[in-house]
Amino acid sequence: MALVSRAERKKRRCVALERLNSGMGVSEVNRTLVRDYGITRRSANLDINWASAQIVQNLDKYERKDLMAWLITQTERVYLKALESNQLSAAIGSLNLMHRITIEAAEKKANKPYHGNCKF
């Protein structure tokens, strides 16, 4: 069993985080870590899990409204690109997502008759 220094492990994890943030998929990041560092898929998965946890921790720093605006903007971009490339099912899917996260969420919030610590 090969021993890995903390510096090398930290470097691999930072590379995994960087690649996930750049938009690479998990399986693609896994494949590149295995290829570049000569590690097992299991070790690459551990590095990817660490990177994913860092991304989730960073999400706590942002407000919900900012995240919602970003999500809607990204979904709108997907919709427009799907229309340009004539991928109608992807366009419909992005429209459904925008409907779900905006209109249905607002209706669900408005339909709550109780608030606070009301218990039955």
Rank of each mutant, 00 (worst) to 15 (best):
G38R: 04
N49I: 03
A53D: 07
S22D: 05
S5R: 00
V34L: 09
W50N: 07
D66L: 15
L88T: 08
L33M: 02
T32M: 03
A90S: 03
W50A: 03
Y37I: 04
P113A: 08
T73W: 06
L80W: 05
L67K: 11
L71V: 15
G38Y: 02
V56R: 08
N111M: 15
S85R: 01
E28L: 05
R31D: 15
E104V: 10
W70I: 11
M1W: 15
Y37K: 00
S5V: 00
A69D: 14
A2P: 09
T73Y: 10
K81C: 11
M68T: 09
H99W: 13
R13G: 11
E18Q: 07
K112Y: 00
Y114A: 02
I39M: 07
R13Q: 14
G23T: 05
C118Q: 13
R100H: 12
V78H: 08
T32I: 02
N45A: 12
R31L: 09
A7N: 09
V29M: 03
A44G: 13
N111V: 11
T102N: 03
M98K: 05
R41S: 09
E18L: 06
Y79F: 15
T40C: 00
V56Y: 01
D66V: 15
A7W: 02
G25W: 06
E84L: 05
G38H: 03
C14V: 00
E104Q: 11
R42P: 02
K10L: 00
L33K: 06
R31C: 04
T73N: 14
R77Q: 11
K108F: 05
I55E: 09
S52I: 05
T32E: 08
I72D: 12
E28I: 02
V15G: 01
K65L: 15
I101E: 08
M68C: 13
D60F: 04
N49P: 01
H99M: 13
G38M: 05
T40Q: 00
R9L: 00
G93A: 07
A105G: 11
L33I: 08
W70M: 14
I39C: 04
V78T: 13
G93W: 04
S27E: 12
V4C: 04
S27Q: 12
L71T: 12
A90T: 08
L20I: 01
A53S: 02
D36W: 07
R100V: 09
T73H: 14
V4D: 08
N86M: 03
A82C: 13
I72G: 08
A90L: 07
K119H: 06
L17K: 05
D36T: 10
G25A: 05
L17S: 08
